[in-house]
Design a protein around this nucleic acid. Sequence first.
DNA 1: ATGAAAGCGCTAACAA
DNA 2: TTGTTAGCGCTTTCAT
Lengths: 334, 334
Amino acid sequence: MKKTTIYDVAEEAGVSLATVSRVINGSNVVKPATREKVLEVIRRLDFKPNQIARGLATSKTTTIAIVFPQALFGHVKDMIGGIGDTGRTLDYNITIYTTEDIGDGDPVAAVLEKVIKSRADGVVLFNSDQIDHEIEIMKKYNLPTVVVGYKVAEDKIGSIYVDASHVSYDLAKKYLAEGKEDIVFVRPQQNLVRLDDFVDGIKKAFEDAGKSFDEDKQVINTSTHYEESYPFFIDYFKTHKHDVVLTGYDKEAVAVVNAAQDNGISIPDDMQVVGMMNTSYSIMSRPSLTTIHVPVYEMGAMAIRLMTKMLNEEEIDQKAVPVVTQMITRNTTK
Amino acid sequence: MKKTTIYDVAEEAGVSLATVSRVINGSNVVKPATREKVLEVIRRLDFKPNQIARGLATSKTTTIAIVFPQALFGHVKDMIGGIGDTGRTLDYNITIYTTEDIGDGDPVAAVLEKVIKSRADGVVLFNSDQIDHEIEIMKKYNLPTVVVGYKVAEDKIGSIYVDASHVSYDLAKKYLAEGKEDIVFVRPQQNLVRLDDFVDGIKKAFEDAGKSFDEDKQVINTSTHYEESYPFFIDYFKTHKHDVVLTGYDKEAVAVVNAAQDNGISIPDDMQVVGMMNTSYSIMSRPSLTTIHVPVYEMGAMAIRLMTKMLNEEEIDQKAVPVVTQMITRNTTK
DNA sequence: ATGAAAGCGCTAACAA
DNA sequence: TTGTTAGCGCTTTCAT
């Protein structure tokens, strides 16, 4: 049972295939009567234009590839809603590619090669260790690119990012002003938000207050797996306690809160904890987490929207779009 | 700057394009010397075969479409890891489509129409209210289909599913044997696991024990949003207490645990709670959740694997593949 | 307003 | 072992 093609429709309607093509592409030079006739046949034969053939003819696939490292998956998945919805609304297909850090040769390049072969119209990249390398490759192939989670200065590349240094600066400044100087940052391996910038913001707040921030001692690197971070903190809080613990992800914040409480440290009275991302963990935790809301769904939507603007050569006010975060105060701070 | 095509390679290598095609498709009738020469040119010109053109010529796109309702997103997202990884390994592209229940006309059909136009080789559908309708449409277009979360009897359609009635039967039976007869099921709107089947299993256990299960009273329908379910249960547990609360999702289990405790009900001493899915919520909750582990990542991987087997017409032992669940006993049960 | 025909970049008979 | 050629199903000039 062969699929009906544009030829079948043309023949059945008694017109040339050019006319059918005009109809399905909404050309306005077609006589209403012909258009009607053609549409009727399309409906009757249940004709679905072959996007592959169209893609070959136009050199456009109306698909956007999104590429992200496995490690970042926990963050990206929340964004896929925004990406999928926006893609559907704007009539773009979304193809997903995951990269893994480990592997023979250059695994990132191998994945991007697939993207190139697929002839996606554009690609959305997510912040990762490899992001500069990825951007380099995309520039080489001149493929429209949007980066999420990392501010890109390049003129031709779009980006959607969180101004993390600003957020952390404000936070640290506030606590310093309250006399809470024993501030520590729990840093997971990866986040959509640039944690380097976050650290820089804290540092600056300390400097501006005439104090110094010792990165070696005041930044605690940790796993993103609760199964690993919780036992670590159980041990850690036997001998430590701080005024304020800032974290790079809600999961870590929960690990800190649970482990501290299990060591008899009262939250928020003895120690205050701030999460990041405002995930559902933050409301389910006891006490519920004060956290930095990052509009993840919207970031996905914005990335696709920016991409399509670039593809359609619409006017773009800013190629690097900062995203607004918001402090959500709950019960792990006073 | 035009992309290099197979013609460019052929000319530069001094062979016909057919030979180049043979080389990139790994035909073994090419003389090693020629192959080498061609490969060298491919490398030098950085030639990436156009998948779109290939797709048109072969009527194969090596892409698999996955379609899921927004409402199920919380579950599907965990599966995307397995889907993406397996797709990459088996060299298939994965295109995602989200559906929304609301919308003019037939929104599900509209999305599936995009899948048809895209000429994906196959489609993976997720259990939803609309699943029968979706299957109907796919059968009409004769597109290879795998359904996740729902056992399909159809001969030509693959499925990966959880035998939920068996799981719940065993659970309920165990508690009934212990004399815990006040068992209640908290049912969220959607889950990858068929909750109807889960209820049936409980019912059967009651029947087999010579007791009756009153669906109206012993099934509590609830929202999947903690923000809604928690306040509901805060109210509910002012006047209720049960021996055992089974839930359809860990999030609901956390809502139950938190709300019960806030009402002075001690978990697990006064009441036992069982979650479902073994999400990260289950270990972060206090007490940590006893829950039913469902291998979500693996289900994604299996779905893609089954799909590719169908596409390659490999031998398939079973079209409907049940997935093994496991009770994870933590601290909300005794 | 419509049709004829070339072309998008590849694969796959068929010939040589 | 290699080359020639006819599609795959559409879009898009260029004529009419």
